[in-house]
């Protein structure tokens, strides 16, 4: 894993500079296995590997930046970075404001993690990260929602008894299904697949990334990444 990362970074650094531009990749860095900060303090995860590979194929020089989930879209729009590659599901609402590349992870049902397998979600207190499709979903059902700023806190809330269950992407929850936390049988299909977010005016960059994602889909390297990092189903 580390080796893979190192070579990817090396390749990114030595690839021809495209028109002298650096593409800044914005991510959250708190949502393993999609993206997280590793022991060395660098962005790591499935999306790091994917992003570096996409940049290599599109012949772009890429740099990684982390940003709070809450303000990740406004900061993209105001130009602090050029892409959002942070496990962001495509939704109609977001699509009104930013553009999305081709999806790189197929739609994946969201799962519940609870201390007690018998939780009735409509009567329970459900934790979710603020400003996510899951939080919007729970609110729309009229259930009792309790929101937290980071994904980590939603898990901690269930462990501490503040909430009865947490609703999030299954592959994120997978890593926490231990020490008494278990999946409920119920799954929710909300939102589309995961894609890279871009400014609406950045058509050129979008075309390049789309082409790179298509080529990765075609040669099976994208599926390989999905399997390696266990992020949902393959294409």
């Amino acid at each position: 894993m580390k080796k893979l990362l190192l070579t990817a970074a090396l390749v990114a650094a030595t690839s021809p500079v495209f028109a002298g531009d650096v593409v800044r990749m914005g991510t959250e860095g708190a949502y393993p296995p999609y993206n997280f900060i590793n022991d060395a303090g660098e962005v790591d995860g499935m999306e790091r590997a994917l992003g570096d590979e996409l940049c290599r194929r599109a012949e772009l020089t890429c740099e990684w930046v982390t940003n709070d989930w809450d303000s990740i879209i406004p900061n993209l729009v105001s130009g602090n970075y050029d892409t959002i590659i942070a496990g962001m599901s495509v939704t109609a609402e977001r699509d009104q404001v930013i553009d999305f590349s081709e999806e790189y992870i197929p739609p994946e049902p969201s799962g519940y993690l609870a201390m007690d397998a018998g939780v009735d979600v409509s009567q329970a207190v459900i934790a979710a990260q603020a400003a996510t499709i899951q939080a919007a979903f729970v609110a729309a059902q009229g259930w009792t929602l309790v929101e937290f700023a980071t994904p980590e806190e939603t898990i901690a809330a269930v462990r501490n008894g503040e909430a009865d269950a947490v609703l999030a992407d299954s592959s994120f929850l997978e890593g926490h299904a231990n020490d008494g936390l278990q999946f409920l049988d119920r799954k929710e299909s909300i939102g589309g697949g995961v894609a890279i977010g871009l400014r609406e005016s950045d058509g050129e960059l979008r075309a390049k990334l789309d082409a790179a994602i298509q080529s990765m889909k075609a040669d099976g390297s994208l599926n390989k990444l999905i399997v390696e990092w266990e992020v949902g189903s393959t294409w």
Binding site: I73, V77, A127, A130, A139, V146, E147, E153
Partner: peptide, 27 residues
């Protein structure tokens, strides 16, 4: 904005302001 979570989206003025900033993507 820190520590204490908002229940059932009952929050203070800043909570709603940031909710709208997120929804409309226009701060």
């Amino acid at each position: 904005f820190s520590g204490f979570p908002a229940w059932q989206q009952k929050g203070d003025a800043l909570y709603y302001a940031s909710y709208f900033a997120d929804k409309t993507f226009n701060p």
